[in-house]
Design a protein around this nucleic acid. Structure first.
Lengths: 210, 210
DNA sequence: TCAATTTTCAAACAGACGTTTTAATTCAAT
DNA sequence: ATTGAATTAAAACGTCTGTTTGAAAATTGA
């Protein structure tokens, strides 16, 4: 009798393999063997391989979006009480911090972040749209809030700068992206330092002149 | 008698399909059919599918790196004549502008930029390392130059900010990344405007305090 | 022109893929 | 304890994959 249900064993292994090896490069035979379940279990429990991918994404993205939403509401409410527009810095923190804190909440979350940061530019539309649906509403919320924070910035410029923000975030979210080999002389940045640098970089970029 | 050699027909189609559909999702049967050549031609001319990918990348990345190298030398030399360290802004232009101007030099170059921006975070090490070898030496050159331009910035911070720079660039380089649907009210930014915004964003981020 | 080399071609190779089927098993509720 | 549903299991399905083969065709150089 397995401690973890078949469904969750599949989800956990799929999360790891889809993130590290890629969706198309992960075969159901390898996946089910690693999970210790029968090959047919994926189609029985999820219907298809693509439906499994959707389930993997939804399992974590829905709670993550709730975290982001709560943080955003805090910032907006605090600003409303002071009768001030929200600050770009606070909005950025509300969007970015939950994402990175998420890594420590559950094992496999790191793989999950790698998966969505890779899905972002995936050539397969099915992969791309699968999680885009889930992340787009949250994105529009932050976009609208940032418009209040930066009322003098033209919308089309804010839009492309938010895309830059996503590209910058994906660097932190994706494992194995440290292309520059790390010299022993200088230790790698801690997670707090990474978060700090990420916030400083995108805030400066977002508030850049013109 | 085909106007374009078999080898180049394959390279052109591979560039487009690898970029738009992904390396693993592109089958040699579809590729060779689209190119109008025999299935066996890929293995005859290139040896294997992976060797074809390497050839696709090398064909454009080597000339592109020469462009970047020339631009970098210009900036360094101009700075040396003035007895000043080079400016971060000029270094960024030398790195970014050739990349984007490259798009207009030859058809298919746009697909190529999509391909390398997607290869950047590809789960497959073979794909990732294939072009990393070609781009890393150029990267180190710019890193060393930026150290001169920003002598007060600790190296490990400069390093992560250069990674952010790459993540930001990939947004511009990759097609179909306009996740936010474009409203008709505001037209999309022109290429010049995109380049301009990219430079402003990364320069501000690179020069951000601390 | 003819021989030698290079390139194309159709066909087949062995293996991997996602999915389906059918039977065996486990489980929950009467 | 027994029935009925839910789950697991092994095996096979048809299709697609990259690669190889050996003969035909085209091209090249003398």
């Amino acid at each position: 009798m397995p401690r973890v249900s078949t469904k969750n064993r599949i989800l956990n292994c799929a999360e790891q393999l889809f993130a590290r090896e890629g969706f198309h490069s992960t075969s159901l035979r390898i996946l089910t063997h690693k999970a210790g379940v029968n090959l047919a279990a994926v189609n029985y429990h999820f219907g298809s391989k693509e439906a499994l991918l959707r389930a993997v994404i939804e399992r974590r993205l829905v709670p993550l979006n709730k975290l982001r939403h709560a943080r955003l509401e805090e910032v907006l409410q605090a600003a409303a009480e002071k009768q001030h527009p929200p600050q770009a810095k606070d909005l950025l923190r509300a969007f970015i911090e939950p994402t990175l804190e998420f890594r420590d909440l559950s094992p496999g979350a790191e793989d999950f972040l790698t998966l969505i940061s890779r899905s972002w530019n995936d050539p397969d539309q099915t992969v791309r749209n699968g999680f885009m649906e889930l992340v787009l509403p949250m994105f529009k919320l932050f976009f609208a809030s940032l418009q209040q924070a930066l009322p003098d910035l033209p919308v089309e410029i804010l839009r492309i700068r938010m895309q830059f923000l996503v590209g910058t975030m994906s660097i932190i979210m994706c494992r194995d992206n440290n292309f520059q080999e790390q010299p022993e002389s200088t230790p790698p940045l801690s997670r707090e330092q990474q978060l700090d640098q990420l916030l400083k970089f995108v805030l400066a970029g977002l508030e850049a002149p013109q």
